[in-house]
Amino acid sequence: MLPVVQVFRRDAPGQWWPEGADVFQLLWCPNTHWDPPFPQADASPVVEIRWRRAADLTPAPFRPPAPVRQEDDDYGFTPLPCLLTPIPLTDFPYPQELPGGLREDVRRLVEETGGEEGGEDIITRVAGCKFGGWPTWHLTEPYTILCRQCGAEMTLLFTVASDATTGITVGRWGDLRVFSCSADIRHGYDFDVH
C-alpha cells in the first residue's frame, strides 16, 4: 500500500470526521485490480482509509518501501511526493441537480470555464483531492448510492482526481471517489472510479 494523502482536521474541518480522529490517511495499492474485493471499485487501485489521532503519529517521517508494480511506471497510481495546499471552496452539484434559475447560472459558468465537453469544467469538477462537496458526473447521469447496512443515502467523503501536479491518473483521467453513509460513518465506504 502506498500513502496517497494525509490530511489534518484543522486543514479540512467538516462533519465527516469521526469522533476522536484528527488525521485522515488514504492509502492504495499502486496496481490496477480488475476483480477487487468488495466494496472496492473495478479497474482501480484497492483503497484503505485510516482515521488517526495526530498525537499517535510518529514524528519522524519514514520512507515507504518501493511498490511492486504490475503496470508501466508512468501508469499513474504512484503519486509524486508533494504537499497539498488546503483551500476552502464551494463546489456545485451537477447542473441537472439544481433548481431551474441556479441550474442555468451554473451551466453558464461551466461553459465559461471550459464547458462540459472534454471534462475541463472547473465549476462542477474540481481538480486535485477534496473532502466532501459534490461528486462529478462527467461519465454518467447522477445516481444515488445507498448504504448497504442501513439504506441511507451515501455522501461524497473524499475524491482523488487525476491531476498533473500529483502525477496521479485515475482511469481515463477521472476521479476515485469515496462515499460514506450519511447516517453513520462506521457503516463503511463505497468506492468508485468515474
Rank of each mutant, 00 (worst) to 15 (best):
W134G: 00
V106P: 05
P86S: 05
S182N: 02
T140L: 13
G174K: 00
A183S: 15
P65S: 10
L89I: 13
R108G: 02
E153C: 11
E116D: 12
W51E: 02
R9D: 01
D35R: 08
P142W: 09
L89T: 10
V160M: 06
A54F: 13
K130H: 07
V5D: 02
R63K: 03
D105G: 09
R172V: 09
D175G: 02
A66H: 08
A21L: 01
W51Y: 03
V7H: 09
Q149V: 15
T155D: 14
R172S: 08
G14V: 09
D73V: 12
S162I: 02
Q15C: 00
C147G: 12
D105K: 15
T169L: 09
T155R: 14
D105S: 13
A12L: 05
W173M: 03
L57R: 00
G188N: 10
L89N: 08
A12C: 15
T113N: 06
T78V: 15
L89E: 14
A12G: 06
Y75W: 15
V178R: 02
T85A: 14
V5N: 01
C147S: 13
P67A: 12
L156G: 10
V23K: 11
V4N: 11
T169D: 01
F131I: 13
V23C: 06
V110Y: 09
W51T: 02
A164T: 03
G151E: 13
Y143N: 09
